[in-house]
Amino acid sequence: MNPEDLLKLVTTEMPFGKHQGTQIADLPANYLHWFAREGFPKGEIGRLLALMQEIDHNGLGELLKPLRGRRC
C-alpha cells in the first residue's frame, strides 16, 4: 500500500455496479464483504476495494476522516 492509496479511497468513485458513483470510502460494508467472498476485480479498483474492505473490517474508517475534501 502507498500512502496515496488512502487519499484515493476518498476521491475515487465506484465505476460500475449497484453503487456506481459512490466514493470507495463510502461503500457499504456488506458490499465490500461481498467482494471479499466472491473476489475483487482486477486492477487498481480491485486493489482499492480490498484495501477499503480491510480498513472497514478492522474498524479503522476514522483514519480517512482527515483526508475527506482533499484532492489527488
Rank of each mutant, 00 (worst) to 15 (best):
M1E: 12
M1N: 07
N2S: 12
P3I: 10
P3W: 11
E4V: 11
D5K: 00
D5H: 13
D5F: 09
L6S: 06
L6F: 14
L6T: 03
L7A: 07
L7N: 08
L7V: 10
K8A: 13
K8M: 14
V10R: 02
V10P: 09
V10F: 07
T11M: 09
T11E: 10
T12A: 11
T12I: 11
E13M: 13
E13D: 12
M14K: 10
P15T: 08
G17T: 02
G17D: 01
G17P: 02
G17L: 01
G17Y: 09
K18V: 08
K18R: 09
K18C: 06
H19W: 12
H19D: 03
H19A: 07
Q20R: 15
Q20F: 01
Q20K: 13
Q20W: 05
G21H: 04
G21Y: 14
T22R: 12
Q23H: 14
I24L: 11
I24Y: 05
I24A: 05
A25I: 08
A25G: 13
D26H: 06
L27W: 04
P28R: 08
P28C: 11
P28T: 14
P28W: 13
N30V: 10
N30A: 15
L32R: 04
L32V: 08
H33K: 10
W34D: 05
A36V: 01
A36P: 03
A36K: 15
R37K: 14
R37W: 00
E38T: 11
E38N: 15
G39Y: 00
G39S: 03
P41K: 02
P41I: 05
P41R: 02
K42A: 15
G43S: 06
E44M: 06
E44C: 02
I45M: 15
I45E: 08
I45W: 07
G46C: 11
G46V: 11
G46N: 02
G46R: 00
G46H: 05
G46S: 09
G46T: 03
G46M: 06
R47N: 12
R47M: 08
L48Q: 03
L48N: 03
L48I: 02
L49N: 09
L49M: 04
A50Q: 14
A50T: 01
M52V: 02
M52E: 12
E54D: 14
E54Q: 13
E54K: 13
E54F: 10
I55F: 06
I55S: 03
H57D: 13
H57A: 15
N58S: 08
N58I: 02
G59K: 00
G59N: 05
G59P: 05
L60P: 00
L60T: 12
G61C: 13
G61R: 14
G61P: 10
G61M: 03
G61D: 09
E62L: 10
E62A: 15
E62K: 12
L63Y: 14
L63M: 15
L63H: 06
L63S: 08
L64F: 04
L64T: 00
K65T: 15
K65H: 15
K65A: 12
K65D: 09
P66G: 10
L67R: 09
L67S: 10
L67I: 05
R68V: 02
R68H: 02
G69R: 00
R70Q: 07
R70T: 11
R71C: 10
R71L: 15
R71V: 14
R71T: 14
R71E: 15
